[in-house]
Amino acid sequence: MTWTSIIAIYLLFWVMTAFVILPIGVRTHDELGLPKTPGQADSAPGNFQPRKILLRTTMLSAALFALYYVNYSYGWINRDSFDGLFNPPV
Rank of each mutant, 00 (worst) to 15 (best):
P38Y: 09
L64C: 14
E31K: 06
D80W: 12
S5P: 01
F13M: 07
P45R: 00
L22S: 04
A8Y: 12
V20S: 07
N47D: 07
R56T: 00
I6E: 07
R51L: 15
F65S: 04
T57Y: 01
V70T: 12
A66C: 11
I6M: 11
I9A: 12
G84P: 05
P45T: 02
L85T: 09
T17M: 13
D80L: 13
L85S: 10
F86G: 03
K36P: 06
H29C: 09
L11K: 00
L12E: 02
Q49L: 09
L85G: 07
H29I: 06
L11C: 09
W3V: 11
F48N: 03
F19G: 13
H29R: 14
P35M: 05
A62P: 01
W76K: 09
S81P: 06
K36E: 12
L34V: 06
A8N: 09
F13E: 00
R56G: 03
L55S: 06
P38M: 11
A63T: 02
W14F: 13
Y10Q: 00
I53V: 02
G39E: 09
N71A: 02
F48L: 15
D80G: 14
D80E: 15
I6W: 12
P38F: 06
A66S: 13
W14C: 02
G84T: 09
E31Q: 15
N71W: 10
P35W: 07
D42E: 14
P35S: 10
G46E: 03
F48M: 05
Q40D: 08
R79L: 15
V20K: 01
L60V: 10
S5Y: 07
S81C: 08
S5E: 11
T28H: 02
Y10E: 00
V26D: 05
F13Q: 01
F48Y: 15
T58Y: 01
M59T: 13
F86D: 03
W3A: 10
A8G: 11
P50A: 03
L22K: 07
A41H: 09
A66G: 10
S43R: 08
D80T: 15
W3T: 11
G84C: 10
I24H: 05
I77N: 05
H29D: 04
V70M: 10
L67A: 13
L55C: 08
F82K: 04
T17V: 12
A18D: 02
P23F: 08
V20N: 05
D80V: 12
I77K: 08
I6A: 12
Y68D: 01
T57D: 02
L34K: 11
T17E: 08
V20C: 08
S5W: 13
L67Y: 06
T2M: 11
F82W: 15
